[in-house]
Design a binder for these strands. Structure first.
Lengths: 244, 244
DNA sequence: CGACGATTTGAGATCTTTCAACGTTGGTGG
DNA sequence: CCACCAACGTTGAAAGATCTCAAATCGTCG
């Protein structure tokens, strides 16, 4: 009943409980092809190294990005220095600031690793809407995917304890990254980023990771996390199944 | 709170901080007028009483709802009986199951109070896209609003402690309800729903509400919550301001 | 009245954070 | 090559926040 299928289409529904993995949907579906194509062909090739931002909270951005190769964390920063990671994006993912042209972005897109991306202005994208109706459907689909991921994260934070939260997040990252052409052996996410994503302290995240390693779900090498048993991780996360 | 340096660039923190209230945006903007109009004119008038659902998790819905008068909580249910409230909707708000026609909804829309709404099928809505381009923009805008609210809630859960979380949620509900033509003196949300929305126990929420009452931000009458000082609530919520 | 759901209260158990110190890694400049 | 530094990871113990459990109260409805 595990939907581990990466490229094949295995959307088999289960009689009792269904697998949630909303996070897998975004990567497996091909619906964004029109959007991706136009960004790739008309967009500007951009490069940002680890730690830099594609855009910053407070800036007026109005752009769409397609990640060619890399990893990005969308994060919101509070006045007290706190920050909340809203979502992660890896190869083939599309992200934008989601704001009107005249209003500043309410979050930053920070590179987890050196990142190559295509950037296109939202206004020039809108101009193409008339010519290609698929484009707008793709934008819609993109937003739906983001929303479902956000709802998944919300449920993760609201309903789960530490170990489950970390397990769920790692699953999500794993699935997002499996769409990448080049697969990293380890996850390019710092423990601090994980902590900021699931609303916990880095110190505590470290403890939990130690436990997950003891369970045999992950492996750690010089602080880098490697996912060993994705199926086990999925079971450890409290959100593998929803009520019918 | 973890203070994090963004790779040397400490993101020149904020001369003056801006007010966030993303939650106010959705209700104040008039952008969804095309969408609302068509749902109101072509939709079917629906009535559901307190406790009933407009749609249920697991059902195949494929509809859009415009709430004429009432209150609805979008919630996801886990196999263990846990449930997470994802968002609240009141008068003039639009919601949908956000799924393809062939896939079941991953959450329920439960009425907090007796609710009158207009319902239109997503497919018939799509048929009108060609005739009215504003419609699709409105759908897009709706999704953006929902996403920004979800990100706001995510930040609330991830970065804030109990009292701040409750204060933020009450602010959000207050702003959502202020769009309503008929204003209730009290908030039609049970303490249990609040608990499910912010990822805490009803027992603890009760303690926090007692504190907020002591602060003079709210009042409680037979278990019903009344917002006395919305500005104070906003200050008590940790998310009134974002870093610039 | 009696049943039921929701709220309220208190105390102890559990989870999570904080603090402080130390270890590791990788880059920089002498 | 080495010393040095900054960022990140690791560890332990104490403090704090939140949950659980159990019981009492209150309101609504039949």
């Amino acid at each position: 009943m595990v939907i581990q299928n990466i490229n094949g289409v295995t959307s088999k529904l289960l009689p009792q409980a269904r697998a949630v993995n909303d996070f897998a949907v975004a990567s497996s579906r091909d619906h964004l092809s029109a959007l991706k194509t136009i960004i790739r062909t008309e967009g500007v090739r951009t490069y940002a190294e680890r730690g830099k931002c594609l855009f910053r909270q407070g800036e007026q951005v109005d752009k769409f990005f397609l990640i060619a190769h890399g990893g990005v964390a969308l994060a919101r920063h509070g006045v007290d220095g706190s920050s909340q990671v809203l979502d992660f994006f890896f190869d083939e993912a599309v992200l934008s600031d989601m704001k009107e042209a005249n209003s500043p972005a309410t979050y930053s897109a920070q590179c987890l690793i050196d990142t190559h991306a295509y950037a296109i202005s939202a206004s020039s994208l809108r101009r193409s809407f008339a010519a290609d109706s698929d484009l707008m459907f793709d934008c819609n689909q993109l937003l739906k995917d983001l929303l479902n991921r956000a709802y998944g994260n919300l449920t993760n934070l609201g309903c789960c304890h530490g170990e489950e939260r970390v397990a769920y997040l790692l699953c999500m990252i794993h699935d997002s990254m499996s769409a990448a052409s080049t697969r990293l052996s380890h996850i390019p996410v710092r423990q601090i980023d994980i902590a900021n994503a699931i609303g916990m302290t880095p110190v505590y995240v470290n403890q939990i990771l130690k436990n997950l390693k003891k369970h045999g779900a992950i492996n750690m090498n010089k602080g880098a996390i490697e996912i060993v048993d994705a199926r086990l991780l999925r079971e450890l996360s409290g959100l593998y199944e929803l009520a019918a």
